[in-house]
Structures are given as structure tokens and as C-alpha cells.
Design a protein around this nucleic acid. Structure first.
Lengths: 206, 206, 206, 206
DNA sequence: GATGAATGAGCCTTCATTCAT
DNA sequence: GATGAATGAAGGCTCATTCAT
């Protein structure tokens, strides 16, 4: 029994070390620089071992994305702790996402990779998993908006639509971060971000 | 004399056929599927021929994106003809973009690709060119909002920020189109889109 | 245990077969004909396999040359066994080289290739390695001449210069072997070679 | 008639401009960097034009080599002017060659290329031409040695063999020039060169 | 006679994946 | 269960050469 458990723990550890290596490479060399061989080398494992833990490269990356989204959710949860005003809660979500995109670039890239790829690229099983994740992300905003409506902070209107709008806005704004050294050089990206989010919140507030 | 012209026309045609093939592949197989060899095969040309029309892959992709943005601008311009109300003009831009993303998928995808790629991927020269293009796109919304402020339709506030918010929103929303068969299956993407855009316009209106 | 050893032996064998193929191609088709792809094909291996044995083409060629020089040194050593007269020893070296150039054409050609290439072709790392090898080759003649001086056979003069002269002469003469069917057709290359070497030895003898 | 002549002159000029471009590129980028396309561009001519003046790349390079050898002969002739002592004449030839290898690197490389390539690479016609050139080069030394014998400066022995030895020596020594920054760093290449040549001359002197 | 456009074959190298051990 | 060796396919790109005009 103890043996079985130890084995299980070792397996998990090995699995995790693969993911660690993958994330690191992803961050260092971008999506194309993170090859299976390099991940294996970095994780100090045989290449074939990777394939006994993950079906293929895409699968590995999907898990990475899920981890990323889990982490994101966690960070948002933590950030929301102790905050009760729905408006501030919404703003907090937005800034958590922005912060995540900067501090966890490697995770952000991979999430972004899956969001931005044309649908065609993924088979339906994979796509379903991605969407499931997306749904969970959406639901966070959904919940806050619902609370806001219930507590009388927000106008009573289609919650899901508002949540979608919210995410679309902050996702779009975050993408534009990379323009800050060129097009947006005469302004401050964070300020724009805040401005936009505030405006959105105001627009759904009573 | 006529001969020279004909040759010139043929060259342009061939150049265009390369771009068409590239766009198609990019849309169908993603960035990794759009290799120079594949493009050449699809265009029914030798690989080396591609290199006599474009310096390298990066150059080709840049031209691809520029053409896409030119077309987008053109379509927006046409759509705006005869419309004078700034609110409607703004909405028209939004829907032109949505329509473009659906009817000109190949063009849309390449634009999207450049927006969504992590900065690292491009050398500065290319990035600058891309940003230049993005700036021109931004300026369309900018102009409309300025008009709106001047004619008293819109609140007098930082125009550029509003334009950025506007684009971020519709860009994000358009990305979510691909969720319409899953997460958004209980609603209509176009309806959500319209709802969001309306809400944005209202939020900057007097 | 025996398994590990066998594997190791197999790896060495495969490595060697790559070198054999490379040498053969280099000799048959010249440097431009000895591409990694061709070598792989000749060795009946996948291209990628070559890269798991050698870092890159340059590395492979370096090893190739080192092996060649090792073999040459070995042959010279063997030929020198039991011979004590410095004059004969020097002559033996010369003829060992000539013999090597004929019997081990593949090896000879690669050495020749590295000597004859314009400096520009190699990065400094490679060049340094080559020179290190060349130095070892030079030292063989150096030693013999030093002995000769000590034993009173040769005039006491700058040893290194004599060694360089010696190698320059026999290297140049060996290159001219290929002229034997045309320019030198009225004489015998080996005879010329011997004549020249004798004359050189005489010129440094007391 | 004048027209015909002018055409002929133009043709020659164009031919020469190709060779000029080729030589320059050869010098700048080495033997592999001098591609037909680049030569054409540098000569401001169409690629196909090159092929109407030269059968193929090898042919062009052969002509280049011939030009090089002509130039070498010319330089040697000039250097020999006014010198009558056969010993000094021989030394002058040697130093002319060394100087040529340094001051006319581009020419020297290409001559070297043809000398050092394995025989196999060239078809017999080409090889014959190369050898013809080599023979002419050889004959210069031949003549001087013959004079020396006649005037009592040199020992009466097989002239041709001496000439071959002479060329082999200076060719070998010149090749070793590239070792001067490494193996020969504690001596001076020119000094070694002179030492060796002097020794050779002494060895054939009465 | 001169040309520029076109090209297939080839370059070196890396990739995701498999399989015998 | 873990692995290292092997690999065909493919990547971007350049080449010498041809051919219609």
C-alpha cells in the first residue's frame, strides 16, 4: 500500500517536472522553441517518457493551459477575498487578468495560443476541453455580476451577455498591451485599461 | 510596349496568387501549416519563385497582413458611405469588422495572427510595420468619435482611449465568435455582439 | 552488463559507418558533394541520426580530419619502428605520407581539404582544432631532426624551420602526384619524389 | 567593319566585367559565396547573359584561373627583369609567388582550388587545360634552372625534377602561411619561407 | 544577343513521434 | 515503467541552370 502510494507520488512528481520544464521553455523560447526533445532534456527524462504521461505535444500543452487557467482562477479568487462591492470585485477581476498576463507570461501565451488559433486546428475533443475551461473562466464574472444585480448595484439585464462583454473587453485590451511602445506610446496602457474597465462597469451600473 | 505591360500584369497576378495561397493555408492549417513550401505547392509555383517576389517568409506575411488591413479599411469606408450619425457610424464599423471576420476569414485570420502573436516572434522592423498598420486602423474609429464629440453626440473625453476601448471590445467579441457552438449556444453571437456595441456607444454618448 | 557493452559497441560502429560514408563521399564528390543528406543516405541512416552523433556538419568534418591524422601518425610510427638512422627515418616519414595519400585516399583527401581551404571557411574553434592536429604532425618530423642533430647526422640549425620545410616539400610533391599522367608523364612521380626528398635530406646533413 | 569591331569590343568588355565581378565576389565571400546570380547582379547583367559567355560556372572559374596564372606569370616576368644571376632569379620567382598569394588572394584561392581538388572532380578536357597552365608555370622555373646550369651556377642534374621540387616547395610553404598565427606564431613566416628557398637553391648550386 | 523570371533539387537542421530493450 | 536511439518529413532558403521573349 505504502509502496503503491509512493509510486503514485513519484509519477505525479515526474509529471509535474515535465510541466515545469515545458512552462519554462515556453517562456524562454516561445511556443515554437518548446520542443518535446528540449522539454525532455530540461526535465532530465527520456523523450519517450513524455509520451507515457501525455498523448502528444498538443495534449501536454492543453494540460499546461488548464494549469494556467486554474492558476488564473486561483489568483482571481485570492484577489477577490475580503472585497464585497460588486463593482470593485469586477474591477479586481480585470486587473488580476492584466497582472496575470504580465507576471505569468508563459501561461498567458499558451492560453492565448488556444484562444487565438483558428477553430479548425483542434479536434472536437480538445476543443470541448478548451471551451469547458473558458466556461469556467466566464462563470467567475457571471457570478459577480449576478451578485451585483441582486444587491442592486448593477442594472438587471442579461448577465451572461454582460460577462461576455466584460471578458471580450479585457481580453482585447490585454492584447493591446504590446502596442504600448508604439501606437500607445503617448499614453499609459494601464491607465487606458483602467479607464475602459471603469467605463464598462459604469455602463452596467444602476 | 504592350508586351511590357502584359508582363507586368502577369507578375502582379502571380504575386497575388502567392498571397492567395498563403492566406488560404494560413487560415486552414494555422501558422505552422503555412510553410513556404506548402504555399508554393498550393500556388503551383516553385519555392524559389516565392523568393523572387518576397524577400523572405516574414516579408510575405507582412504584405499579407497589409493587404488584409487595406481591404478591411476599404470595406469599412464603403459601409460608412452615406451615414452621418456618429453613433450609427461607430456601430457600422463594428459590424463591418464582424462581417469581415466571417466573409473574409482568410484575411481576418492573418490579421488576428499578427495581433495575437507574442511580441518575441517578430523582429522590430516587422513589428513596426504592423503597428503602423494598426495605427491606421485605429484612426478610423478615432475620427468618428471626434466627429461625434464635435457634433455633440458623444461626451467630450479622451478620444484615443475611447477608440482603443472600442477596438479592444470588438476584437475580443469577434474572437469569441468561435464559442458560439459551445459556451454561447444558448444565445446568438450576433445578438451579443450588437448588445455589447450598443452598450459601449451608449456609454460614451451624452 | 554485456548488453550495455554491446550497445556501446553498436553505437561506435554506427558512428564509424557515418565517418566512412562521409570520407568516401568527400573523396568521390568533393566537399560540395558531401552533404549531410548524402552522407546519411550512403550510411543507410536517417539524416537526423547523424545529428545525434555529431553536433553539426563542421563537427563531423573535424572528427573526420582528426581520425585521418591519427591514422597517418600511426602509420608513420609503425613505419619508423626499428629504424634508427635519422636520415632514413626522415625518408621513411616522407614515403609513409606518400603511401598514405595513395592507399588511404579518402583520409588523405579530407586532410588535404582542410589544409587547402582558404582560412575564411572555418570558424576559429574549428581552425584551432585543426591547427592543434597539424602541430602534432609537425612534431614528428621535428623530433627526428632533433635526434639527427644530436647524433651528429644533421647540421645544427633551426629545427622547426627544417621540419616546416620538410612538410611543405612533401605536401607539395604529393599534390603534384595528380600531374603524373600529364605534365610529368615523361618521368616517374615516385622517382621525382624520392629525388626531392633525398636532396632535402642531403641539404640538412653535415 | 568598324561596326563589327565595336561589337567585338563590347563583347569583350562585357565578358571582362563578368570576370571582374566574379573575382571580386570570390575574394569577398569565398568560393561558395560567389554564385552565378550574385555575379550577374554585381556585373549588372542578366544571369542568362553569363551563360552566353561561359558554358557554366566551372568554365567561368577556369577562365578566372587562367587569368590568374597569366597575371602570375606576368608578375614573375616583371620581377625578373634586370636580374641575371640564376640564383637570385629563382629566389625572385619564389617571392613573386608568395607575394601573389597575398596581394592577389582572390586569384590565388581559385588557382589553389583547382590544384587542390581531387582529380575526379574535373572532366578530362578541363583537366587538360588546367595541366596546360601548370606546365607553363613550371616552364618558367625550368628555364631559369637551365640557364643556371649553362652558366655554371647550378649542378648539372635533371632540370625538370628540380623545377618540380622547387614548385612543390614554394607551393607547400605558401599553404602554410595560414598557420602563421597559430603553429608558427613563434617565428616569422616570411623568414621561414626565405630560409627554405635559400636552402633549396644552395642544394642545387655548385 | 540579352534577359529576367522560373524552377527542382538540394542545402543544413529540427521536429514529433516510435520502438526495442 | 522508463528510455535513448532512430527517423522521415518538413522547415526556410539558395543554387546553377533554362527558356520564352
Amino acid at each position: 500500500m505504502g509502496l503503491k502510494e509512493r509510486r503514485e507520488r513519484e509519477k505525479q512528481a515526474r509529471r509535474e517536472s515535465i510541466l515545469v520544464a515545458a512552462r519554462e521553455l515556453l517562456h524562454q523560447k516561445g511556443i515554437n522553441g518548446a520542443s518535446m526533445n528540449q522539454i525532455a532534456k530540461k526535465a532530465e527524462l527520456g523523450v519517450a517518457t513524455l509520451y507515457s504521461y501525455f498523448t502528444n505535444k498538443e495534449d501536454l500543452f492543453l494540460v499546461l493551459q488548464q494549469e494556467g487557467l486554474d492558476l488564473l482562477r486561483e489568483q482571481i479568487s485570492e484577489a477577490l477575498e475580503g472585497i464585497s462591492d460588486p463593482k470593485i470585485r469586477l474591477k479586481t477581476i480585470a486587473f488580476s487578468f492584466l497582472e496575470f498576463s504580465q507576471k505569468r507570461k508563459n501561461y498567458y501565451y499558451i492560453i492565448n495560443y488556444f484562444i487565438s488559433s483558428p477553430e479548425i486546428l483542434f479536434e472536437s475533443t480538445l476543443k470541448d476541453q478548451i471551451d469547458l475551461q473558458a466556461e469556467r473562466a466566464l462563470s467567475v464574472a457571471n457570478a459577480v455580476i449576478t451578485e451585483g444585480i441582486e444587491t442592486g448595484s448593477f442594472i438587471n439585464q442579461n448577465t451572461k451577455r454582460s460577462a461576455v462583454t466584460f471578458w471580450a473587453l479585457i481580453f482585447g485590451l490585454t492584447q493591446f498591451k504590446k502596442l504600448e511602445t508604439t501606437i500607445l506610446r503617448d499614453d499609459n496602457h494601464t491607465a487606458i485599461f483602467e479607464h475602459s474597465v471603469d467605463q464598462f462597469i459604469r455602463s452596467i451600473s444602476v
